[in-house]
Amino acid sequence: MSVEQIAGEYNFAYLDEQTKRMIRRALLKALAIPGYQVPFASREMPMPYGWGTGGVQISAAIMVPEDRFKVIDQGADDTTNAVSIRRFFEKVAQVETTEKTAEATVIQTRHRIPERDLTEGQVLVYQVPIPEPLRFLEPSEVETRKMHALEEYGLMHVKLYEDIARHGEIATAYAYPVKVEGRYVMDPSPIPKFDNPKLEMAGIQLFGAGREQRIYALPPYCEVVSLDFEDYPFTRMRAEHCCDLCGAEDSYLDEVITDDAGGRMFVCSDTDFCGERRAAGHLGPLGVAESAA
């Protein structure tokens, strides 16, 4: 089937207009109350739960034909999840897609915030597996909603206390809980805590959890504070290396096992950031110059 034929059988961006309206209403409410989890009637999507059904629904609801769409999975544009979601929207919305962070208007992400600072007008859509930060200590949804409503967040610090008691430091390395505008405690989805300071940004951030049927959001320049103890303050965490390809000293790195004899290399998890740096002539210890490649 050609792209035109498939496009003719679907509404623009897959979802019907009523569903989009429902999601947009939830998004507006979420933006009005930063960090508050808004329930929404999540739809079945043509992909399994856990593959980004929440993020896809948000992207579909906010997308216009003029948008340029980028998808990253753990920072990379070329992983299975990213490639298939990008193809999905190429098919059902015929929007332009890009791998360049700077050129994208809507960026759907799984587990990373791009290294390059987003600008006003850009939208970052997160795929969220478990939106409730208190879930692992308090299994009851009735109780956690009450705790949010009454601002009873002592339990969140119990989790951090347990970390220090067991590991000697706050060992939570991802999905690190934050307090938004001094009110709601929020799970920033499983981004590494290295990215937490970047949650205060110029772009709009939308979080969608399809299976859990929750949407929440951070408007631009929103105050986002990572929780900590006075004597164990929040720290960013990063592998103590430079990127082996582009030599970056300040980006978040993935460790890649290269053989079964202990060989490994560290590379930027943000592939676009790494590519741009190499194109600009930066070279890491194991990097190969653009011209030679």
Binding site: E152, G154, L155, H157, V158, Y161, F229, E230, D231
Partner: peptide, 15 residues
């Protein structure tokens, strides 16, 4: 952590 929960619930933030 069990003993500390009530303290943290009341705003204690010094480990």
């Amino acid at each position: 952590g069990n003993v500390g929960e009530r303290l943290m619930g009341l705003g204690a933030r010094h480990y």
